[in-house]
Simulated assay, not measured.
Amino acid sequence: MRLTRRGACTLVAAVVLVALGLAGGYPLLVALGAIALGAVGAAIGVAGRKPRVEVIRELFPDRVERNGRAVITLRVHNPGTRRQGGFTAVDRVGEDRVTIAVRPLAAGAEQPYLNELPTGRRGRHEVGPLTLFRADALGLGRSELSLGGTATLWVYPRTHPVGAVTGGLPLHHHDGEATETSPRGSLDIREVRPYVPGDEVRHLHWKATARTGQLMIRDYADPHQPQFTVLLDDRREITAPEFEEAVELAASLIVAAAEADHRCRLVTPGGVDVATDSGWDAVQRYLEQLCVVARTEEAGLPLVPGALARAGGGTLVVISSAVTVSPDDRAALVGVRPRYGDVILVVGSTGAAPAAPGVRVLRAANAVDAIRQWRTVIA
């Protein structure tokens, strides 16, 4: 228990009033000082008793889109034989705070409390620990008690319904170049890698196993499966509002592609490089990555990283800003253009349009506008 600033000032004023009253012979000052001292003593008596309750926190759901609905439920139980006074429960959600006023509880009683969590900021937010506060009516003293651990709330970027690109250049594998006329269901070797428990034993590569001394396995890929790559500009030159719109657009496009059974890749100039197969696990991984991606502090980064310049196949979508795309960036995009079936640059509506031969440019005011224009790409 501790005195608040108001309580400390009241205590000092009480001592001064009593001292002046006794020294000058003023009973009124002594009485006022005594009243103030009594108020401080009462505050210590009320706020000094910490809540003796059991609290269970339930967070549902723990993964939502930005501005989605996530609620926290507190189940407050009084295990004692005496009535518990009311108090205030405060949960921290990142930089925000959620306050719940808990009413007095009878002995053995339990009361649930429901409150919505702030989800306006994208990110991985830590919820908790829960802090219980008890204060007197005058706000002179307060006690604090921390309970329980923490939970995690994932606030994903918003995703909008959008179609996936169906075309793209054929991929290249160890057995040669695949063609667009390859029959569906055919497989090409993507790589020969060490065996991992759970791999198909019938895919063991015995020659490589004999040569390396460890079990090696053929990793197959479907040559007819489309490939979709998103290059998200996370350089510090792009403004915060533009970056949030870019993340929202990247999430919408890559989720649609992964759900359409495309092999996807997410790359940023700042070092993010995530490549997965399609399916729900891929969607979750990309959303988690886009949940925490932030602008890099490193200066002078090129838009197209070296790893992406050496890759190829399928469709490449570059999401940036017209202001931050330099002539060198445009030259790099022109350089990687032959490696992809299509290269699309999406930039904001401010600044001059960065024209690049062979690269389609979409200018959009925000993510929703960009998705509206995306229909011309997949038409």
Rank of each mutant, 00 (worst) to 15 (best):
I378P: 00
R121Q: 14
I44W: 13
N67L: 05
T119I: 08
V76R: 07
A34E: 03
F243R: 08
V162F: 06
E237V: 07
P305Y: 06
A352E: 09
G198N: 11
A356H: 09
G48H: 06
G351H: 12
G313V: 10
R5V: 12
H174Q: 13
L303D: 02
W280T: 13
E237N: 10
L105S: 12
A353F: 02
A311L: 02
A137R: 14
V293F: 09
Q289N: 01
G270L: 13
A367K: 04
G358Q: 03
G348R: 02
T166K: 09
I100V: 15
V347S: 11
D62M: 03
D188K: 10
G313E: 09
Q373N: 13
L266T: 11
S182V: 04
L11F: 07
Q289T: 13
A379D: 02
A109H: 14
A367Y: 02
R265D: 10
F133R: 15
E237F: 01
E245Q: 15
T73P: 04
A8R: 14
N67V: 02
Y220A: 05
I378V: 15
L130W: 01
E200W: 02
R83V: 13
N78E: 15
F87N: 06
E248P: 03
V192P: 00
L105R: 12
E298C: 07
I44Q: 08
D234K: 05
Q111M: 15
E242D: 13
Y220S: 01
V165W: 13
R218F: 01
G41H: 10
L147H: 08
V361F: 12
L17M: 10
G312E: 07
T350A: 10
L117Y: 06
G108V: 09
G120A: 10
V336P: 01
A164S: 04
P161Q: 08
V155N: 09
A240V: 10
G351A: 12
A107D: 00
R6P: 03
G335A: 14
R285K: 04
G7F: 04
Y286A: 01
G80L: 11
V336W: 01
D329W: 08
S349E: 12
G38L: 14
E288K: 10
A331I: 12
G335Q: 10
G41Q: 12
L345G: 01
A282E: 00
A353L: 09
H125T: 15
R236G: 10
P118G: 03
V317F: 04
Y220K: 01
